[in-house]
Nucleic acid binder design. Structure first.
Lengths: 335, 335
DNA sequence: CTGTTAGCGCATTCAG
DNA sequence: CTGAATGCGCTAACAG
């Protein structure tokens, strides 16, 4: 049984209220009282009961993180950064994956209210179903979006400029001389995909190049076969592939290998999101690297600011730029 | 402002106690009352306040997960499985990394008490400093160890037989004809390392082979240079390397490449823990694969059992077997 | 079957 | 400067 503030008060020979004041440093207490309370607390090993505090305050010190899938390196890294930074500020991180399912997302958010979590950091699951997030935000819960900006819904966002990312990736291939580029993405419904592909498509179109849309879904095996299908016919085969997240990257790489194609001789491949293993691949992978650590830290800092009321006035909408990291998986087209 | 049970009671025209009974299905209530309460709750959008419930009950429905480092794929995957399975049972997962630092581990555990978390799933940071875990467990918090068994401390454990893992790995190389094998591990102080290396060392010794201990630390760059040092002199160079976790695996791979060695021609490399990208490496990597999903699921299931009091009597100590997955990074030695 | 009542541990208001 | 008293939302013991 944990020690309560009452026991501390008794031990110190003061009232419970005085003990509380002394312990939390508000109101006014005599130095002597503070001293005795501190000593008593120390002696008994008193610890604040956050639950009782939360019930009284109406909020806990737990921030919720709702990624698409915690297993993806991008989200795992973000979670890691968040957990760290939030802990330093006295918050705990609770994590739950949405699996890109809006219903699940809604349920989890409902749960937040019951758990009195005052803040949510979310990679919104769906392209445009975020009424629930907007409402949550307006109801006073601090919401910070990552991966995809929800600034237009009045929600603070720390993201990468996904449109620019797509454009930069495409332009790199255009500069290399590619005329037909395959764009591998999971689904138009998911968060960042539409912006990325749109950026690429427009850049390609502008340069008079062809964009092959490869909607590959979120299942790895299925994704691989989708890409394989595009690679099947030699005549219409793209000379370059852009995979818009780490799952798609692996799918593309596997499909290319299965098709017996050499990278970058037969086909160039670019991924999004870097990984320490990419440099060790048969063809070290060229990627558009998102500043993952940065995003995590920024999101955490912003959240802490919002929760402590020290944040900026308006809606924050930081858009970092993804960085092109050229390695050996990309080259001018063969023909 | 959320709806309270009192408002529901008022709306339904019953007392608050009756509303509670109807809502939670305990005690006895008339069908009519239940019906009206349910309707009222529905109408007002009532949701249980878990915090109030927790204060009353003395525990929350939040399980704490304390991995060495959430960023590592092994732990990220476990976290993912845990989060999933626990949610289904009505629990939330709170995550915090120990960074293999016992002090940090202790602090986080202290925090649990204040947060009334009734369960801890932990990859214990230190080889033998786990008095705090034992005490926590004895004080009534359900503790489940992963990665390294703490069964001898009376703590339920779901792990892999790390001793066997090391032995199996070594024996595979012995069978291939290797006589000098480098064992790359982070630190003797950390959780699973000693068991794994011990298993390998004993197997090697038994076969009259030489074990080169490479204590590489937890910093990637430093780890790489430690391995490089061992590779420097050709005469004493091992013909095979076993890297005992994913960080060590990358360090070994990088070091080998930097040293200008070809895998497996000049040196064989085996990793521990599988990864989807390993099949795409220049030399697809042979590994000892831990059943990660299985560990996560088992740990979650056991935790739920313990928390609901339906668990087995004694201390659970499940030791899964790691599986050897042979790919192309291992071969008989050249000479 | 149901209402009344008393806390869970804490922060805070109101007297003193 | 300090103590007594109140209530956050909920559960459970106790009457009725």
């Amino acid at each position: 049984m944990p020690i309560t503030i009452r026991e501390v008060a008794a031990e110190a020979g003061v009232s419970q209220a005085t003990a509380a004041r002394a312990l939390n440093g508000y109101g006014s207490t005599s130095a002597a009282a503070r001293e005795r309370v501190a000593r008593a607390a120390e002696k008994l090993g008193y610890e604040t009961n956050y639950i009782a505090q939360a019930l009284r305050a109406g909020v806990t010190r737990t921030v919720t993180f709702l990624p698409g899938n915690l297993e993806l390196p991008f989200f795992a890294t973000i979670a890691h950064r968040l957990s760290d930074a939030l802990e330093d500020a006295g918050y705990l991180l609770a994590v739950s994956s949405s699996y890109e399912d809006v219903e699940r997302e809604r349920r989890i958010i409902e749960g937040m209210r019951a758990r009195m979590s005052p803040g949510l950091i979310v990679a919104s699951a769906h392209r445009d179903m975020h009424e629930h997030l907007r409402r949550l935000n307006e109801s006073g819960v601090a919401v910070v979006a990552i991966d995809r900006s929800l600034a237009s819904d009045g929600i603070d966002s720390i993201t990468v400029d996904n449109y620019a990312l797509g454009g930069d990736a495409a332009r790199y291939f255009i500069g290399l001389g590619h005329r037909r580029v395959g764009l591998v993405f999971d689904s138009e419904d998911i968060a960042s995909s539409p912006d990325r592909t749109r950026g690429a498509v427009e850049a390609l179109r502008e340069a008079g190049c062809e964009a092959l849309m490869v909607r590959a879904g979120t299942d790895p095996a299925e994704a691989e076969s989708c890409v394989r299908a595009v690679l099947a016919e030699e005549r219409s085969r793209p000379t370059a592939l852009i995979a818009f997240d780490s799952l798609m990257t692996e799918a593309a790489l596997y499909a290319v290998r299965e098709a017996g194609l050499a990278v970058p001789r037969d086909i160039s491949v670019m991924g999004v999101d870097d990984h320490t293993l990419y440099r060790l691949l048969e063809a070290p992978l060229t990627v558009m690297a998102q500043p993952v650590d940065r995003i995590g830290q920024d999101a955490a800092a912003l959240m802490v600011n919002r929760l402590s009321g020290t944040g900026p006035r308006g809606v924050v909408d930081v858009r970092h730029r993804a960085e092109l990291v050229v390695r050996s998986s990309t080259a001018p087209p063969a023909g």
